[in-house]
Design a protein around this nucleic acid. Structure first.
Lengths: 154, 154
DNA sequence: ACCATTTGGTTGATGTGTCATCCAACTTAG
DNA sequence: CTAAGTTGGATGACACATCAACCAAATGGT
């Protein structure tokens, strides 16, 4: 029972609030744009991108780990994408439980069309806002936080 | 039709990837923690926090603007929160269409219990990962991106 | 007074993320 | 060989976000 919780000091609060606001607006804008001009959700985009980047054919669990998602999420996502014809599922002969996820031609076409547009938006909304030095700093800070998170329990 | 799309250079790519990864993991961890030990979603948390911070009684649209959400989102959210007894809706005498959102005692109790825990997690997962100088830098960068976004069409 | 527009807010459909649970197939200790 | 444990993956329930459409009350111009 902590009698007096240690609130954040003004600078800390400013950093946290600013970061949260920025991240929400940025991600929001970007995903709306991606969705609007490629008819793909950000989830579709990243899954297809990683999948094709890796050759267009992967074991389900490998893909899940590559994208760093939970398997349930990927399972649902792949099911939806399969329904829309972006990927297909194939059985795995080596492992009776396993399955391969394959990018369909339609899927390849979709990602090839979407990728440059995506990059342009990232550039326009984010990269162009900052100097190269600021980008480097942000990368360093991000990696610091990531490393910290990995050390931290749960 | 852009013949050769300008991909990001390695430093830009590293900054973007790092930021995205960091933000996903951080937000993910935090919202799981909040949910786990307060039985409130991040959405519940922020709505209740802003609402009580503003006195615990607000016009629906003022609250919506304060939280910077779309009204539809807030409408659904408030409906769910009302169902769970965290807030209540009251009619507005001045404006026949309007309504007030009021934090119930249960809502106040919930947020007062959740807030210190939330702060502790923010501190543990984020603040403690960085020096004060890095926090300041991040705040500056965030505000830069935010300002840039506001100038940018759509 | 009247019509057009704006504002406040709801609703329903659809897509998405999480959790818990389940099951079949593989692996390994004994 | 068999039982126990682990892994690959699916599923259903639920909370959440977004979009488009809608409606009624307020407002403003004529």
């Amino acid at each position: 029972m902590n009698a007096t919780p240690r609130w954040l000091n003004p600078e800390q609060q400013a950093a946290w609030d600013g970061f949260i606001r920025m991240q929400e607006k940025l991600i929001g804008r970007l995903s709306r744009r991606v969705q609007a001009d490629s008819r793909m959700s950000p989830a579709d985009y990243i899954v297809l991108a990683k999948l094709t980047e890796a050759g267009g054919r992967m074991r389900f669990m490998d893909l899940t780990k590559l994208v760093e998602w939970e398997k349930s999420r990927m399972s649902h996502q792949v099911a939806r994408m399969a329904k829309r014809g972006l990927v297909a599922k194939e059985e795995c002969p080596d492992d009776g439980r396993g399955s391969f996820i394959v990018a369909t031609p339609a899927g390849r076409e979709a990602i090839e069309e979407a990728a440059p547009v995506h990059v342009e938006h990232v550039r326009r909304l984010f990269i162009d806002a900052l100097t190269q030095e600021e980008l480097d700093t942000l990368a360093r800070i991000s990696n610091r936080v990531l490393a910290h998170l990995e050390k931290q329990p749960d």
